[in-house]
């Protein structure tokens, strides 16, 4: 059973790939976007927020979801920023 939704498969043109590669590609895509978003967010966070962010990242139990939630709570334009990064990557890797 494919753990990826149709949305993801369609959106990223993964339909032709075998399941294993789909998952691999999703991981790579996710990592790229996650990194890109992190980099951009770090520019925006205030110093206090950076400290908070440090604390969050230092927690052994922190998950990427929490990171995203945190950034979204601090950066009003986070969604826009994320969309930009997603679209940028699409421009790079989609045919």
């Amino acid at each position: 059973m494919n753990p990826l939704s149709k949305d993801v498969i369609v959106e990223w043109g993964l339909g032709d790939l075998p399941l294993e590669e789909q998952i691999d590609m999703v991981d790579r895509i996710g990592r790229l976007i996650y990194q890109a978003v992190l980099v951009r967010s770090l520019d925006i966070l205030s110093e206090v927020e950076q400290v908070e962010f440090d604390l969050l990242l230092d927690e052994d139990t922190t998950t990427p979801q929490e990171v995203v939630v945190f950034l979204e709570s601090k950066i009003p334009t986070f969604k826009l920023l994320l969309k930009e990064e997603i679209n940028k990557l699409k421009m790079d890797i989609l045919v």
Binding site: I29, G30, Y34
Partner: peptide, 23 residues
């Protein structure tokens, strides 16, 4: 940040990404 990401097990990572990488 990447440590946080890498901590996810593969299944959870897929789940996260499946949500994260959609517009």
């Amino acid at each position: 940040g990447l440590r946080v990401y890498n901590r996810l097990n593969p299944a959870a990572r897929v789940a996260f990404n499946a949500a994260f990488i959609t517009v």
